[in-house]
Amino acid sequence: MAKPLLRVQHIEVFYHDFHALWDVSLEVEKGLVVSIIGANGAGKSTLLNTIAGVLRPSSGIIEFDHKRIDGWMPYQMVAEGISMVPEGRRIFPRLTVLENLEMGCYVPKARQKRDQVLKKIYELFPILEKRKNQFSITLSGGEQQMLAIGRALMSQPRLILLDEISLGLAPLVIKNIYQTVKQIHSEGISALLVEQDIQRSLKACHKVYVMQSGKIRLEGRPGELSQEDIRKAYFGV
């Protein structure tokens, strides 16, 4: 496999007294799509939030491109090349679609290439260009998800963290969105993808981690893991 871009080593994360992540280690290789699957409350979002700098690990190491980044603030992560599509999309409702996208390239380095990247995003999601002057709250759920992804891409990340991008969307829209994940990957951007839907996830990724109760239970390439093993790890039986 290719060289690791992101290395998470033995991190522990707490919410006050609650021990949410237990000795979690994971690697995302350059240019690959890696996915994390797990049931509700397994700790998937906690893991992504920790990588994005929203939460801090109490111990363990996170390295990005051979640089230690654990304990950094989220805005430093973005400047370094990690951006996240958070769970629930979290678009800015009182900003227009275009303004939302502009916020994606807030960091000075990304701002320089604003027009160029914006053009690419509009090619990826033509609907966003049509709706660019609308307040983003007026978009449909699927359009909002596209906006959230487009916004995260505006910073020209090297690694994009995608948290349940299919949540609450119609099957056709989901298919569409995953099509763009493929395109993102073909641009050479690495992706760490969180999903509850096992099949969807296995189809989209090169490597999968199965989480349960705050621990990594299983890892491997989708083709090499048996359905049975995955199911066992997923449900923790």
Binding site: V78, S83, M84, P86, F92, L95, E99, E102, A110, S155
Partner: peptide, 23 residues
């Protein structure tokens, strides 16, 4: 301005604004 929009973004959703690289 970028800063003006960033101020509005932060007032909409502080957490999401941080994820955009806004301090």
């Amino acid at each position: 301005t970028y800063m003006g929009k960033a101020i509005r973004a932060a007032s909409d959703d502080e957490g999401a604004a941080q994820l955009m690289g806004i301090n």
